[in-house]
Every structure is written in structure tokens, then in C-alpha cells.
Amino acid sequence: MNVVRIGIVGLGNMGSAHAQYIFNGKIKGAQLTAVADVREERLAWGRDKWADSVSYHASLTDMLASGNIDGVLIATPHYHHPEAAIEALQAGVHVLVEKPAGVYTKQVREMNEAAAEAGKVFSMMYNQRTNPLYQKLRDLIASGEIGEIRRTNWIITNWYRPQSYYDSGGWRATWAGEGGGVLINQDPHQLDLWQWTTGMMPKRVRAFCSFGKYRNIEVEDDVTAYVEYENGATGVFITTTGEAPGTNRFEITGDRGKIVIEDNQMTFWRLRTPESEFNRTFKGGFGEPENWKIEIPVQGSNPEHPGITQNWVNAILHGTELLAPGEEGIKGLTLSNAMLLSSWTDNWVDLPLDEELFYSLLQERIQNSTFQKKQVNEQTLDVDNTF
């Protein structure tokens, strides 16, 4: 194979953007050959753009049957990601899934099992893993430069969304339409990076989620979560869509200092002597380790979505290691599910997550969702995978 023939499922904002850069030759070794969407108006939009260069299909099933694709990029609504991926994998094509991996881990675990059985290249659109800032952070932590991690703290509140944003679609910010709020829609990248850069998943979570605190919505729009790790480290994750101006600050403290990422810069306060050693040897009444404030140089651009797509294509053609393996999508989703479950039960949540309990409580909310009731009345589903 010299060229990967790619099909796009879902021509919402994200799917259309993916299709455009692939069609325009931005991905070496790839060609856009098919698109699928249940909405005829989106297919008509595609015909105006690409004419007879690609084939047009009303469903993923039809597109897979056409034989026109080697790989599929899934950009459908959240709930459909795992089921579409499973269908494509079982049909023998490679799969790249938009974030999030799904809405609940039980479903995503089934997707991962299907990927393992299929043996195809399976990736997740975690485009912030291409950001050199977070790649450098991951390298510094993995190499031991900061020492054993003691605390993580991410304040990510610059996701401001006005009421008009939520009013733009009846499916937005509903349990039945999106499956959640800020955690499932805006924060998947940060939840993924939180565990990817540190290399740690917590052992338990205690979260406080507010539902419709700042906006007239039924899902969470304000979250404060506290986590504990096996090594005794702790972490805090704070997020909202109702604050302005917002903050995006990721801070990691270790035995050898502190790293902060904010305003697209990385600062390292490096201890000349590890804190544990200083504490053991210092004999004065007051004192602290000498530290050096270092602005860490970060080189390279951030190719974001095209970067992940190129990496996926390279893995198919050349066996290149995946930057965002699809199986890892369950990790960030586990954090999201655990935070919601903690709030729903008003208690600690231990990991591994009780997937059956989360699923049952989610189903209760779906049944009472305003969008679920609207679907029953109208029997329509018109959604767009955008954040």
C-alpha cells in the first residue's frame, strides 16, 4: 500500500475540517475517497466541494461496503464513536476516532477489545499530544528531572461558553445528546494530558460537580476534583465554562522542583538539592533548598489535528509508533466518569471504576433528559460534533 484511502464519517464542523485538509493534500500518503453522513444537506455540501472525487454515502455501513476506503476517521456524535469504530474494525479497516473515545467506559472497553481482535491501526484524535510543550513536560517527568511527583494541579477555566452557545442546538449540554458537559465536551484533551504527561492514573477520586450552575443546562458546567495516587501524591483538577477571564495553568511539583505551564510557556523551578535530601541533612531552624528559575526552551510547532492524522497514516504505511493509541482513550474518559460518579453518589470513587454503576446512573439521566424527550416527540437526530 502506497496511499491510504480515507473515509470520513460525520460531516459536522470537525469532520468537514478533517475532510478538507486531507482532500487538499495536507497528509502525505493519504487520499480522501469517501464521506458519510445521515444528513443529505451535508452530503450536498460535500458534492459542491469535491464533486466526483469522492463517493457519498448515507451511512457508515454503505461506505464500508463500497470498498473505497482503507481507513476511516470517525467524527460522529459522542455516543456513536465506539459503535462506529467497532463496525469499521470488524470490517477490516483502520480507525481514527475523534475525541472523546465515548461517553462511558463500558462501551469504550468493548471498542478496545474489538481493536485488539481486528489487529488494525487504531488511534485517537488527541491532537494536544502533538504540542511540544506537553511533549517536553512528559520527557522531563519520565527522565526523572523533576523527581518523584508529589502534587499535580490543573486549573482549566478558559472554556467560556455563553447561554447562546448552548441554545444553538437542542442536543447540546444534555445527557441524551452529548452525554455530559464540560468534562466530556471541552476537557477530554486536558484529562488525557493529565495522565499522559505524568504517567500516572489516580487510585481514587473525590469530585464536586455542579449541574447547570452558570447556565440553563442539565449537565455539569463547574467541576472541582481531588485525586490520590498510589505513591502518595495528590492532584486537583478545576474546570468550568462559566468563568471569565479564564485560566489555563498546569503545575506539577516533585522532589526536585516545580514545573508550571501557563500562557504557552514552561517554567521550571529546579531545586539544587532534592527536597527529601535537604530535609534529611539540614540542621538549621529555618531554611529551604536553593532553587533556580529556568525558562525551558520548547522547540517545534504544534501540527494538532493534521499531525495526529499524519501519524496514523504513517503507522499504517510504515509501522510508525502511534502518538495517541486508540486504546488509551479510555484513560481520560475514566477520569471524567469517576468525577461524575463521585458527585452522583456524593462519595469517593475507587479505580478501577465501577462501570456498571456509572452506566446505570447515566441511563437514569438520559431517560429524564430534555433531548431524550425531544427525540421521542420528533424522532429526529440532528447533531454536530463541535466543541
Rank of each mutant, 00 (worst) to 15 (best):
Q135E: 12
Q135M: 11
Q135K: 14
K136F: 08
L137N: 03
L140C: 03
I141G: 05
I141D: 06
A142D: 13
S143I: 02
S143K: 09
S143R: 14
G144E: 05
G144F: 05
G144W: 05
E145Y: 02
I146W: 09
I146F: 11
G147E: 08
G147N: 07
G147I: 07
G147S: 05
E148H: 14
I149H: 01
I149R: 06
R150I: 12
R150G: 10
R150W: 09
T152N: 06
N153W: 12
W154Y: 12
W154H: 09
W154E: 05
N158F: 00
N158Q: 11
W159S: 01
W159D: 01
W159K: 06
Y160M: 03
Q163N: 07
Q163R: 09
Y165S: 08
Y165D: 10
Y166W: 15
D167P: 09
S168P: 07
G170Q: 00
A173V: 05
W175C: 08
A176M: 09
A176Q: 07
E178H: 04
G179A: 10
G179W: 07
G179T: 07
G180I: 00
G180N: 01
G181S: 04
G181A: 08
V182N: 06
V182A: 02
L183M: 05
I184R: 11
N185G: 03
N185S: 13
Q186E: 13
Q186F: 14
D187Q: 13
H189A: 03
H189C: 01
Q190W: 13
Q190S: 12
Q190D: 13
L191W: 06
D192Y: 10
D192T: 14
L193H: 11
Q195W: 04
W196D: 07
W196Y: 08
W196F: 05
W196N: 10
T198I: 07
T198A: 09
T198E: 07
T198Y: 04
G199E: 09
M200V: 00
M200T: 03
M201P: 11
M201W: 06
M201S: 15
P202K: 00
P202G: 01
P202S: 01
K203G: 13
K203A: 12
R206I: 07
R206V: 04
R206H: 10
R206T: 05
A207Y: 01
F208R: 14
C209Q: 09
F211C: 10
G212C: 12
K213E: 13
K213L: 08
K213W: 12
Y214I: 04
Y214K: 13
Y214F: 15
R215N: 12
N216A: 15
I217D: 07
I217P: 08
V219F: 00
E220A: 07
D222W: 03
D222K: 02
D222S: 11
V223K: 02
Y226E: 12
E228A: 04
E230L: 10
N231L: 12
G232N: 03
G232R: 03
T234D: 07
T234P: 03
T234A: 06
G235M: 03
V236G: 05
F237P: 02
F237I: 02
F237W: 07
I238T: 14
T240N: 11
G242C: 08
E243K: 15
